[in-house]
Amino acid sequence: MKPLRILFRSISSAFKSVFRNLSLSLASLSCIVITLIIVSVAITFSSNVNNITKKIEGDLTIVTFVKSETEETKIKEIEENLKVLPNIESVSFISKDAVKEEMKEENDTYKKIIEDWQEGENPLDSYFLITVKNIDDIGETAATIKNLEGVDAVNYGEGLVEELVSVFNMIKNAMIITVAALVFVTAFLISNTIKITIYSRRSEIDIMRLVGTSNTVIKLPFIFEGLFLGAIGSIIPILATIYSYVFLYDKLGGIFFNPILPMIEPYNFVFKVSLALLVIGSIVGMFGSYKAVRKYLKI
């Protein structure tokens, strides 16, 4: 009962204090708002870049041709052998008849040539489309496949793919570092602003200490105040994120100037970003307050 009472009093006193020290609260709030907007831009941008690289990576396949005259049982055997290899995500078989049909559809010239073939004649090769789990090891996997019995040729876009993968990795790492750095800077800024707020109230903390208030009871209202400021401060960045992302998505038609660069669908994504902002704001505000108030609790 007593701890509950103290908790409740801390929350109500934290709430009052936000309004009693309005100008200082506003200073902290504007700092939180600005930094969280920057964090939001960074998160939105990096998530989109990440989404695009994931999508492109997902489209990369190893095309594995089997010899034209291979029998059906042999093909099944090859498929089984492929599936047990490490780093294989999926294996799908495209028969030479399917290739023939597909080519017929593709354009009239092909259609004419194919129609000239005799009934049952098909010089085309069947192949497997293979996607891999880890794109970094695609070269190694392709080499292993090439050595399998019955495999004629393997093609995965050597050279280009390696280059693409290394560029993607670079972008990913740069994004992670940027977001982490921004969150760190935000934490630092917010904690410093709250420190100033608390500095102006150190006499209050002093008096509480002198009349025998325990450190926990002194700390709690300040920690809740940090939490409130962080949470309130994330409202504007959240609204800004939701409205501007939806606006941008509609304006650009869901792509970054080219269909191979799609944007993440706003629904769900903006809510995830909002949640991240709320959590970052609250935790950083809480932690900033905690750090600052601790300073004045030592004798």
Binding site: R20, I207, R209, L210, G212, S214, L297
Partner: peptide, 24 residues
């Protein structure tokens, strides 16, 4: 210890020259 000081202060009333009241 620092975090136990409050136990002592609850047994002692302190009167200051400058009152140390909370203005708000």
């Amino acid at each position: 210890k620092n975090n136990r000081v409050y136990k002592l202060r609850r047994k002692i009333g302190i009167v200051f020259q400058d009152y140390k009241l909370l203005p708000k």
